[in-house]
Design a protein around this nucleic acid. Structure first.
Lengths: 158, 158
DNA sequence: TTGCTAAGTCTGTCAACTAGACTTAGGATT
DNA sequence: AATCCTAAGTCTAGTTGACAGACTTAGCAA
């Protein structure tokens, strides 16, 4: 068949797949995009993404249930108390995923004007980007420089 | 309302959204996972992911049409010539996205045994990871250190 | 008690996914 | 030349989920 060692291993405990069960869906990514842009309220999210309200409701609940967002009460003058949605630490840790989408999209799928947002280092204002690096400090140029090897969770197919 | 500047801007040319139109779907991620693991053939991908054949067919066509994969003929002894699917440069550039999923999944959604695969630098064997860095060389610890600002494609809502 | 608003829920319609069986096409075998 | 073999793909029928648009809720204010 093929020379890929990975064919001999089971996929059932794949961590990529596990991550996808939570966040592997278009609207969920857009909810997270809004959250990272500091958009926190149901109406704002619905208006900015154009997603069906029912789906937004569903996705917000899911993300709260799994600890990526938390509900925080707020109060506008003359209004009753309502809830907004903020990223937890666990949610914040998805930032590289969104940055990866942003970078790839900006390179291959942007309108001619360029990206809608850019990312700056809060402390120095310089542009932020993702880099692949190894523990010895080398910077890797591409996926070609990476060798996937079986990890501790790898199980041979019986 | 809220203090997010982004509320005043149009989302229609968002590059994240553009990227998601191509790759923002569970099965597509899994096809790419297999491709990065050097799994290149229809039967192997179908067997390893468990995805419906029709969807695999559909996703492969989509990825080829958009230039993320290319079809390459191969020939097993005693068999007719068939096609396998390999990543193009454009496809390779999605690697950080998969690594981001892998890292997040390993941290928050792994089985107790740990991840199925690990990534090594081909040249030195050290573990590979994603880092957020700014153009001045500072390493950023989290999304909190990043300020999103309007990019060249930003358009105020009329 | 009526109005206002953000945040949701309800309804019917329609497109997408799914499992499983079936088809295809070229090389090898008889 | 007829038949078998296999990887790759297509077909069918049933089910799930997305979708648009209208409706409901709950607390505050007048």
């Amino acid at each position: 068949m093929s020379e890929a060692w990975v064919l001999d291993y089971d996929t059932r405990n794949c961590t990529i797949e596990a991550a996808l069960r939570l966040v592997g869906e278009k609207w969920t990514f857009l909810v997270l995009r809004e959250a990272f842009n500091r958009v926190r309220r149901f109406e704002d999210m619905q208006h900015r993404t154009g997603m069906p309200r029912q789906i937004l409701s569903n996705r917000l609940s899911r993300l709260v249930d799994h600890g990526l967002l938390r509900k925080v009460p707020y109060r506008e003058p003359g209004q009753r108390s309502r809830s907004e949605y903020r990223l937890t630490e666990q949610g914040m840790d998805l930032f590289p995923l969104l940055v990866a989408l942003l970078e790839w999209g900006s390179k291959y799928a942007a309108s001619r004007d360029g990206p809608l947002v850019e990312l700056e280092h809060r402390d120095c204002g310089a542009a932020v980007q993702l880099q692949l690096r190894c523990a010895d400090g080398h910077r890797l140029a591409s996926a070609r420089d990476v060798t996937p090897v079986p990890g501790p969770g790898a199980r041979r197919i019986a």
